[in-house]
Design a protein around this nucleic acid. Structure first.
Lengths: 237, 237
DNA sequence: TACCTTTACAGACCGACGGTCGGTTTACTA
DNA sequence: TAGTAAACCGACCGTCGGTCTGTAAAGGTA
């Protein structure tokens, strides 16, 4: 931390810089365990500078999630709006996109983030993240299921009910992944990996069934990616 | 707060009293928003007295969940161990027990607790509660599904995988209930109620399907209880 | 250039919080 | 009744998120 000449930045740039710093810290140390001093030190901004742009520490979380939902909404929008594809194909595209987005982070980063979010101190942050993603993606999934219902591809009583249930499962069912990551390198590794794929199977069987699709219609293409995840050696810390 | 004569209590009693006070406060105000001063005031114990029995504020949460898991485990144990009943009947008994336990609280208390847990400030507590209940109930559910598999009642690939998935759904799928409670008294009430029952339907359809049971075998008997919940007028606060 | 206004920033300061510590009271035993 | 161990008290401490007063940079105007 060498003493640098003070540099006034454009408000939007400074805000984004602070959001970036907070993002890193919150998702590794957790919200409560990240102090304002941490954020100020990593960003090189003074307290006064920070509170000129944000009203509170809480607003950082809010700001992070606003950025995130905007990205998710935009991505899903383009997929759902491509009506040249069938509803099934578009739904599959959503899952593929999910896989791509996570893949793009790289295995190590995914593991690190996942591990951090699963810590007890971060459960609140994780729950809020799930809720945020659910709220952002629900409308588009509902719209897509509605489209598939009218086209006769999906056999569904109520699109919104189904969308709610599927969104819930997609977002929150990460227990088996945690267990598998935990088991890396131990003699339980093989069993945990099989359990993980069995979990994905039951998850996607359920999804297909809820939409009235035959088994295996919508599928996760996560195999090679999960393999990459489990191949990462456990970091000592 | 009249000044009373000091009364030394047995450690176990004092601990339980403090856990009771903390339970009430945490599940209404939330963990972070409950100060030590709140707990001390409501229990009439001094700071020194408290820290004689507990190491930290965090330990209160831990203590609360230990008591809770013990109760859950005991209740499920007796049901699962009653091998005179079929596996289906025992699984149904678990859901009935769940309904009874919640009913016993009374509609107002359920609504209040649910509302408190759903607030953003309490999401961490809620997630930890879900995780705790899941860990406590999983072994018994696995055992029961295993029994039903060998008896031929359930058609299941792997008992543990299925138990994990069902436990996950049972514990965490409370979004529709929140929405319905939120809609009480408004013109959306009817729609929200229908949506809630549709959500329960898709939930139990999934459960039955995961166990290879025909639709409607395992069912929730929550109708009249949910009616009672939704009949409670919204309290202004 | 000189001057003024606006705004991005600095850091001393504040009250509230969780937790500590030395001392006091109670309950029990001999 | 004296001794002791454990239950209890409350003043005190360090750290936290947040405030407030002041200052330096940036940009307009002459």
């Amino acid at each position: 931390m060498t003493k640098e000449k003070r540099k006034n930045m454009k408000p939007e740039d400074r805000r984004n810089q602070l959001l970036d710093c907070a993002y890193d810290l919150f998702f590794t140390k957790g919200f409560e365990d990240t102090t304002m001093a941490d954020i100020l030190a990593s960003s090189g901004v003074s307290k006064g500078g920070f509170y000129h742009h944000f009203e509170s520490k809480d607003e950082l979380v809010f700001g992070i999630f606003v950025r995130m939902t905007a990205q998710i909404a935009a991505a899903m929008q383009t997929i759902v709006d491509d009506t040249s594809k069938s509803a099934v194909a578009r739904l599959q595209a959503i899952y593929d996109l999910q896989a791509q987005a996570i893949s793009a982070m790289g295995p190590e980063a995914v593991i690190y983030t996942h591990g951090a979010l699963t810590q007890v101190a971060n459960l609140g942050l994780q729950a809020l993240l799930h809720r945020t993603i659910a709220q952002a993606s629900m409308p588009f999934l509902t719209q897509l299921i509605e489209a598939g219902k009218t086209s006769g591809e999906f056999s569904v009583e109520d699109a919104k009910t189904t969308a709610t249930f599927i969104t819930f499962i997609n977002n929150s069912y990460d227990g088996p992944l945690s267990a598998a990551l935990e088991a890396r390198g131990s003699d339980q590794e093989g069993a945990a990996k099989r359990a993980l794929f069995a979990a994905y199977e039951i998850q996607f069987d359920t999804i297909n069934l809820c939409l009235g699709l035959s088994k295996g219609t919508i599928k996760h293409n996560w195999s090679e990616f999960v393999d990459a995840l489990l191949a990462v050696p456990r970091t000592k810390r």
